[in-house]
Design a binder for these strands. Structure first.
Lengths: 392, 392
DNA sequence: CTGTGGACAGTAAGCGCTTTCTCCCGGAAC
DNA sequence: GTTCCGGGAGAAAGCGCTTACTGTCCACAG
């Protein structure tokens, strides 16, 4: 069928072993021989067979990137950065990125991991928040341990570190025979690159509070995911720090898409017409919030302030430019890529938390005087929702 | 090391062959036996070894997706749609998407194809415009032919069909031995899903002309790429159809990013301050154009109309909402995915052209009266650039 | 009661490459 | 001149799986 190692060997007048050695550069070969081999390779346009090579012991050059949705800019940027890093590894050292979309499904996440395991992936980068279901966490930990045991580097990017509980760590996995001393890649413990979602969210809400807002609607992300929980926690931290009562009704669940933001904003307005600010799950949702608000005739930020999260590429061009929390997506992806390639050393403790920076732009502003005088300041909320403590 | 087929076979008390047959479902097996095997597989948490399986003759379950830049929404949406289609192929039939970013480099495109060939990819989807360099086109055609010869399905998505000239088609490739009659996957000729870039661009510019615009700036895409050439041709078609002189200086090259649009807009304004409209390479660049215009104190669309291309997700939320040309990205990606899987039949002739629909939104409007009276209609251009014909 | 065919299951031959082990050969040391 | 030593190249053993090619056994038919 295709041209094989043997063909090249024959053409160069050497043995297959020599050709392999020349190509992998793993063994000294005379200059002349090397030249002949290289020429034969070029003439025949020989291309190594990946599967065969992987089977025979050389590692695979596949790196898995597990994302929620590759069409979402958050993951697009992250994956792009990882991938860029993989490609630049120099001639012959390039790795291929296998991007797996889970659509947010925990089961699919596991499935993809199995697929990657079967492909003997050199590394796997798990991105985005994790489902909080303990059952899944356990299954995931086991899977990760298994991957690590097979020599696959695992990098968690944008999610908290794995619970040390489960079968995680280097705990021996049932079914694995005693390491037969042979050429076995050493298991590398998973590395985590987490985002300071909580801190970012806290600063964002604090910013709104400082502007005088008290009735702040919150469009949360999908329930049961670490990112959502963390951001919500930060939001509440800020509220608590300012002595503002957190009204559950002012938080509505959603997803990271525009429609979610749109619907949520409408719902929020229904629950509390005197809303003066909204923090959205992310920038995409914020855009939906803006659209809904505008349709209701509300001006941003004069009537209602809106803030996003993530600082996705388009947010600076929204009108008004979106106040948001910048997450170092590119940096994180690039670092994850380097970590996956083993070209960067793991942070101490195997966990690094990346900063989340508040970016104040035009979509947030001081609460409007009318609102202040009408609703009072320092307090919170509409009568129908509950009574806030009125300060000052 | 890991659990192997043999281990499962031993545990189930059958031969390895039987286990393989149960797992692939390619051969009748007694219910009881099947059950025992399945149980053993579950107990041992056995995972087939991809490389070994591929080597032994089963196809690989990798599908390559070659894109310019995965972080660009255009490709993100496209790749996402392809990938979604791959995943849904049912249990056991899932394919993994290998996303390769070329960064627009022709050489890297070829490199990636080689990598995919080495991985014995089941299919390859080449997305986005192609470089127009004839040398590259030839090399690409050869590579594609080689891939096809190896049984890899090739789908061109978002670019014109391959020139029938080169070594394309099923022409025998030097170095390939005579098909040894063995189990060789049949070569499937490449399928093309093209976008009607030219028609879309024509309708877009015609829309602007109908609004009275005559001095229309054009921020072109990267030079030497089919997409750029096609859109430019459409733009000129419209100009010609309306008898408007195409002033070369009103077209500046750029890329598909915001910065490009920003810079290009500034340059355009320098060359022709009396500009009344700008068509950008795509929506992202259009955002940059808008930003630059706004900084110069120009209102959109009162002073200058701006139009994008692609209808990327954020364009509806820009302010004003962007007039653009919608390309059916999701549909194209999904279809490409189905084609790659062989789950859809190729269009007649192997080429389908997908429609580009003009979406008129708020960023384009009638040319302002002042401009009309000042610049006249039917003619073109500023004095410093050349002399436009002054009407009325 | 033996012949025949069909339905399963086992045997074994690779797939193309990497790698250990072995061998060969020229030069340094004795 | 003979013995060693070491660099460079070949031979061959798999890696784990798929899949002809064989068996084997049982149900029926003759």
């Amino acid at each position: 069928m295709a041209v094989t190692l043997a063909d090249v060997a024959a053409r160069a007048g050497v043995s297959a072993a020599t050709v392999s050695r020349v190509l992998s550069g793993s063994y000294p070969v005379t200059e002349g021989t090397r030249g002949r081999v290289l020429r034969a390779v070029a003439e025949l346009e020989y291309v190594v067979d990946g599967p065969a090579s992987a089977l025979a012991g050389a590692g695979s050059d596949l790196v898995g990137i597990v994302v929620n949705d590759i069409a979402d800019p958050f993951f697009g940027v992250l994956a792009g950065a990882v991938q860029e890093e993989l490609g630049g590894a120099g001639p012959g050292g390039e790795k291929l990125a296998v991007v797996c979309g889970t659509g947010g499904s925990a089961a699919r996440e596991l499935d993809h991991l199995t697929h990657l395991q079967r492909q003997r992936a050199a590394a796997v980068v798990l991105t985005g928040g994790a489902p909080e279901d303990p059952g899944h966490a356990r299954a995931l930990a086991t899977k990760v341990a298994r991957l690590a045991a097979a020599g696959t580097r695992v990098v968690l990017c944008g999610r908290p570190p794995q619970e040390p509980g489960g079968t995680a760590g280097a705990a021996p996995v049932e079914g694995d025979a005693v390491p037969p001393a042979g050429r076995t890649r050493v298991a590398v413990p998973p590395v985590t690159l987490a985002f300071d979602n909580r801190g970012g969210a806290r600063r964002l809400t604090a910013h709104l509070l400082a502007l005088g807002h008290r009735r702040i609607g919150c469009v949360a992300g999908p329930a049961g995911r670490t990112t959502t929980t963390e951001r919500l926690a930060g939001h509440r931290d800020a509220l608590a720090a300012h002595g503002v009562v957190d009204v559950p009704a002012l938080t509505v669940p959603g997803a990271y898409d525009r429609a979610s933001g749109y619907d949520a904003a409408l719902e929020l307005l229904r629950r509390e017409p005197r809303l003066t600010a909204v923090v959205a799950a992310n920038d995409t949702a914020a855009l939906g919030v803006c659209a809904a608000l505008r349709e209701r005739g509300l001006r941003i930020p004069e009537d209602v302030s809106v803030a996003g999260f993530d600082d996705l590429p388009f947010s600076v061009d929204a009108a008004p430019a979106l106040t948001t929390v910048r997450l170092p997506l590119r940096e994180a992806g690039a670092r994850a890529g380097r970590l996956a390639l083993g070209r960067a050393v793991a942070p101490p403790g195997g966990v690094a938390t990346l900063p989340a920076e508040l970016l104040v732009r035009a979509s947030t502003g001081p609460v409007r005087p009318a609102a202040v005088s009408a609703g009072g300041d320092g307090g919170a909320v509409s009568g129908s929702i509950g009574s806030g403590r009125v300060g000052a």
